[in-house]
Write a protein that binds this DNA or RNA. Sequence first.
DNA 1: CAGTATCCTAGGAGATACTG
DNA 2: CAGTATCTCCTAGGATACTG
Lengths: 122, 122
Amino acid sequence: MREPLRRDMFEDPDCSSQLQPFRFGDKWSGRMLRCLEDGPRRFSELRVPLHRVTPKVLTETLRAMERNGSLTRTAYDENPPRVEYGLTALGRSVLGPMDAACEWARAHLPELAEARDAYERG
Amino acid sequence: MREPLRRDMFEDPDCSSQLQPFRFGDKWSGRMLRCLEDGPRRFSELRVPLHRVTPKVLTETLRAMERNGSLTRTAYDENPPRVEYGLTALGRSVLGPMDAACEWARAHLPELAEARDAYERG
DNA sequence: CAGTATCCTAGGAGATACTG
DNA sequence: CAGTATCTCCTAGGATACTG
């Protein structure tokens, strides 16, 4: 809980997120859910594991998820500014089916690789 | 079982497939799994419920799914030609997590609509 | 029937630079 | 820190026409 997000969080080559057989919302939403499952995070915190996303796209992703009720944006009136993004109950509930999908991917990774190879061979 | 596929199979406005909170593979793969779950279908059969897809894209989708091991293509040496597409065990196994996703979407449809409205209002 | 072959377009996403 | 503002690019996907 509440540990800093690792920069390589989504870069394990054995991670099922690499082949993306499923997509939750747009390109980054699924990963976003993972980033927030242990509690709210700041914009700059999210940029660490999601370091391939530009601020523009990160903002777009956050706005879209806010719009569909997956997360809330809380701005604290401080200087320097502080903003936190946290999952709503609705957003958290998506983790259920997402875990099912991840579980499937993990379990079938070898079969997927084998199928691809078989197709290439002829 | 084995009933003809309805043209409006994916056009029920209450169908959770309309808002596509999840995507399985590309745009048409998820629907394709549904089309094939009751047994193999011919190219032209698939064009009925998937009548918005062009033959080119339908072919691309089928090839992609064949490549990743979700389905098999069987061509019978007849005239006129007959080709059937059927799910593999791997392809069928995807229906598990997909059902979980559909179940989630169905259960949370009202919340999703409400969240969207709330965002618009404020 | 079961596809190819061409051409074309929208929009998701990235690169880069700037700001309250 | 937490974003905007522009500009650009790529490619999934569609329109249309043709074929073994």
